[in-house]
Design a binder for these strands. Sequence first.
DNA 1: TTGAAACCATGGAGCCACTCCAAGGTCAAT
DNA 2: ATTGACCTTGGAGTGGCTCCATGGTTTCAA
Lengths: 160, 160
Amino acid sequence: MRIGELAKRAEMKTDTVRYYEKAGLLPPPPRRHNGYRDYGTLHLERLAFIRHCRALDMSLADISRLLEFVTHPDVKCDAIDRLIDGQLIQVQARIASLRTLESQLLALRDQCHDQKTAGECGILQELVAAAHDEGCVCHPASIGGTDTDDHASIPEDGHD
Amino acid sequence: MRIGELAKRAEMKTDTVRYYEKAGLLPPPPRRHNGYRDYGTLHLERLAFIRHCRALDMSLADISRLLEFVTHPDVKCDAIDRLIDGQLIQVQARIASLRTLESQLLALRDQCHDQKTAGECGILQELVAAAHDEGCVCHPASIGGTDTDDHASIPEDGHD
DNA sequence: TTGAAACCATGGAGCCACTCCAAGGTCAAT
DNA sequence: ATTGACCTTGGAGTGGCTCCATGGTTTCAA
C-alpha cells in the first residue's frame, strides 16, 4: 500500500503520515525499488490508534507514551491510568476557564446598546476602561478580594 | 520609560512588548541617543488594552482590528459587536466540544479495573479496539445514528 | 509513442503568540 | 576598572500540522 492509499484509509493527509513518521510515532516502512514507502495493515492500525487518541486531544508525546505500552504489554498499567487522569484534569480546567471567559464576553456584549459609532460603543469603552485599571464589566476591579485577580491574566492556551 | 519598566508595569515580558511592536500592534516609540526605546503613558495604556483583550482570548488580528476602532472612533460600531459575537460563538463551541471530550475520557477511565499490566488494561484495550473500528466506550460505533460521529474527529484547535 | 495527469520523494517555509538565547552595546555603582 | 543590570538585534524553538517548490515515477489515453 502506498502512502496515498494509507492516508485515505486513515482519513488524514499524506503530509500528516510523513510527519508522524518523522516524529517517531509511525515506524518507517520498507521502500519499493523506486523509493516509495510501502505500508501494511499494521501501519494502518497504528495510524487509527493515533487518530483516535488525537480525537481525545492527547498530545503526540502522550500518544507516543501510550504506543510504548502497546508494544510492551507486560509493564504496569497504572501509568496509563494516570495519563488519562492528567488529560481529564487538563480538559476540566480548560472548560472552567472557558466558562469564565464566556461570562466575560457576555457581559461585554451587553454593553453595546446599538450605538452608531465606535466612539460611543459601550464595548469599546469597557475595553478602553480596562486600560485605565478602573475595572470593567468583564474583569471587575477586585475591591473586596483578589479572587478574580489572577483570572485577568492571559489564558494559558499555548500548548493545547 | 525604558522597555523594562514598561513591561513590568504592563505585566508582560520585554520580549512580548517588542513582539507586539513588530506585529504592528504597538507603534514604534522614539529612541534615545543610545538606541533605547523611550515609551510614554500612551504606550502603557495601549499595552493594557491589548493585555485585556488577550485575557479575553482574542487573536492579535482581532485586537488589531479593535485598535483601529479606538483610533477611528467615528466609524460604525456594529463590527465591534460582531467581533465579540464571533468570539463568543467560538468559545461556546469550544466548551461544547470539550464537554464531549470530558465524557469520553471519563468513559475511558472507567475501563481500568486495577489490572496490573498494560496488556490487561481496559483503557489500552479500548484504544486499540478503536484501531479495529469496532466501536469503543468513548467513541461508540454509530449503530443507530451519526450524532456522535463527527465529534469523533480531531478537534479543530488549529486556528482558534 | 508521446504527452498529460496523478502519484511519489525531499526539504523548507508558514501558521500562532510568544519565549529564550547569543553576541554585543550602554550605563550606574562600587 | 570592573561588575552587574539593563538594552539592542536577529534567529531558533514550541505543536501539530499544512502547503509549496522541485523533481522523479507511473499510468493511462490519444
